[in-house]
Design a protein around this nucleic acid. Sequence first.
DNA 1: GTAGTTATCTGCATTGATGCAGATATTAGA
DNA 2: TCTAATATCTGCATCAATGCAGATAACTAC
Lengths: 151, 151
Amino acid sequence: MSTESADPSAVFRRYLSAMVLHSLASAEAAGLNATDYFALNLLDLTGPQTSGELARWTGLTTGATTRLIDRLEEGGHVRRVLDPADRRKVMVELVAPPATVDRAVEGARRRLGAVIAEYGPRQQATLFDYFGRAAEAYRASTEELVERRDG
Amino acid sequence: MSTESADPSAVFRRYLSAMVLHSLASAEAAGLNATDYFALNLLDLTGPQTSGELARWTGLTTGATTRLIDRLEEGGHVRRVLDPADRRKVMVELVAPPATVDRAVEGARRRLGAVIAEYGPRQQATLFDYFGRAAEAYRASTEELVERRDG
DNA sequence: GTAGTTATCTGCATTGATGCAGATATTAGA
DNA sequence: TCTAATATCTGCATCAATGCAGATAACTAC
């Protein structure tokens, strides 16, 4: 809670909490469980992955991952493509970001767009520079969590 | 996927995906399911809530919400406090952000701290100004999703 | 070609989160 | 006080996601 404090770490903390809340709410609004939403975002962020890599990222067994891919495919979000180089492998490709996800995230995109639009060009440049670097930082941190779990 | 493009909307999109991924991964790393993690973040962000308000935010029935609070209380994350003004009501207060959550988020905090530290004072001021405004934008967007579900 | 390994899939069982319906306690109103 | 409404809790049943173990198919090395 906390009244609006100028303490940078508190500001940042609130920012993180707000994003987590919205992530989970938008998954639910899109009709997806956390695992499915995670997988879709992963595919969107890193491109096609094999079933095995998906299992590693999600922490599921390969069996459960098969079912995960089944669900996503059934929903039309994803398609299976056999790897021509190794036909045992199944590449999972994002077909299209589901419309329900777009609709769920639309409000946030609009509000954030309005916030960003209020800054001047140089400030916007700073923000987008940050977004790019922060995305990589998050990705690396997520990978660290994944590895810690396996290790 | 996309190669690193300068397109602002693509940058922002990747940033959002990366954050969603990390949110979900950190929940799992903290040993919490999505609902429980959502509730903890909500309490952290907005302060104590009644059981009923928690039900509204999570979209659970009141019965399921009772069980949610049970789990959080059992884990020592939260405590029930009777509202003296209306003794039917149960206020749910955050006891302490669980250590497992801290540990899960630590990597991201460190990496993001390093990213932010590279900017000059005025740029940092811009970033923190943004964080504050964005947090509110996310909160409002989350509330919109909640209301859309109920309405 | 045979053996061994790897990647994915399937059948079956389990479990945890949830909904639902009714119970209980408290408050508000006539 | 009696009644209705509200807030939370409990018992029971259900369902979806997952783990596990074994099956299948494909690749690799000899």
